[in-house]
Design a binder for these strands. Structure first.
Lengths: 214, 214
DNA sequence: TAGATTGTTAATCGATTAACAATC
DNA sequence: TAGATTGTTAATCGATTAACAATC
């Protein structure tokens, strides 16, 4: 059986999408520094990429630059944020309030990018009721009710591997459409459900690149 | 100026290298389950990939399968581990013992993959001297001396962005050849040093994919 | 044997890079 | 104007996929 290649918004390739946040970071920094206009060449130098790649990537956002000048910083930020949908609020929860979950809760950059973390969940009674970085830890039993009541769209899984599939099933049945999976397990959605997006954050891939190349 | 495309061991592409850990995980699980021989088709099904891609990827490790049968589980594990250099010990330190650093210290899977975490470092006096997951937190002042004394090859950076470049410079000057960068800063090695490998673990890329596709 | 699977060679697909006209 | 930069079209490069002979 052949699965169709995933098609992305407006024809942007996966590698392009993955580079956009780095551009946004550079351009936001430029704005902080009071710079009004920035060229693709400058962004490329900053990130050690080729200028042509930066221009091609930025083009997917629909931004129009001015020859000889570059891109208006304010407009470029808006274009990148809009393309990434980081100008909209995404209501999210984190399941698991161990060290990784807490680290993610404290990742303030998320807020700038539209991610609204509204709750954490844990099955450890010692943690339930506590607050980390201002976000309350709820009992994992309340997952389904909370998701439905608060129209949570994204669930971030920072739990032990052996709990991952069960939690995945629970949150999907409760209506979550996106899962950000920080466990090493390949998750499966319940049969018959097709409109769920699962993004795996794979730390061992990075380690593989590091050890093979060194 | 044109930078040459990075060439990897035995011609394995970057995407291939990044998939290998997933294969290893599946095959190790098979071994646990008492399975002696596994086919590329089976691995592909498990990971929702195409069988041809799995076979091509496994080929880079030099493993030879048997038509109609598959690969000997024990041999395949050995081949993957050896290709990834996960059969060797890599002496590593973690700089930063906040939640992320502590989460990484507690990531037991690393040990199975040759990563020997020997120390953590922090500049918070409250944390110095404590132990997390059996690993002692040292004063960041001791970084250089420790690296040189213990021939540390890998430094994992789990520190605030604004400290990242300084720590990078310190550990590189002390002799570290590999940096695993969990901050969002693009790091630069000091002038004249060329044989340092920096791998950036980019969480915002994953979030970008998630929000663009949803 | 029949049929499943490997591994090689070729074809396709897609991403990156190059070339260059347009432009400010 | 001269020169830097954009953005488009074409070329190249590399990764994935297909086809199929070999094999157990």
């Amino acid at each position: 059986m052949k699965r169709p290649r995933m098609i992305n918004r407006k024809g942007a390739s996966l590698p392009t999408i993955r580079r956009l946040p780095a551009y946004l970071q550079v351009v936001r920094q430029a704005e902080q520094d009071g710079i009004l206009v920035i060229s693709g060449t400058t962004i490329a130098e900053e990130l050690e990429l080729e200028p042509i790649q930066v221009r091609k990537d930025l083009a997917v956002t629909g931004i129009a630059g001015k020859p000889r000048v570059g891109y208006v910083v304010k407009d470029l930020i808006a274009a990148l944020e809009h393309f990434l949908r980081w100008d909209q609020t995404h209501t999210a929860i984190i399941v698991g309030s161990g060290h990784l979950g807490t680290a993610l809760l404290g990742h303030t950059e998320f807020r700038k990018n539209g991610l609204n973390l509204v709750a954490a969940f844990d099955n450890d009674p010692v943690k339930v009721g506590k607050k980390f970085h201002g976000i309350k830890v709820h009992d994992a039993q309340e997952l389904t009710a909370f998701i439905q009541k608060n129209s949570v769209t994204l669930a971030i899984l920072a739990i032990p591997t052996h709990e991952a599939q069960e939690v995945c099933t629970t949150v999907v049945l409760a209506g979550v459409k996106c899962i950000w999976n920080f466990t090493s397990l390949k998750l499966r959605v319940p049969d018959g459900i097709t409109d769920v997006l699962i993004q795996k954050e794979d730390i061992s891939s990075g380690y593989a690149v590091l050890s093979v190349r060194s």
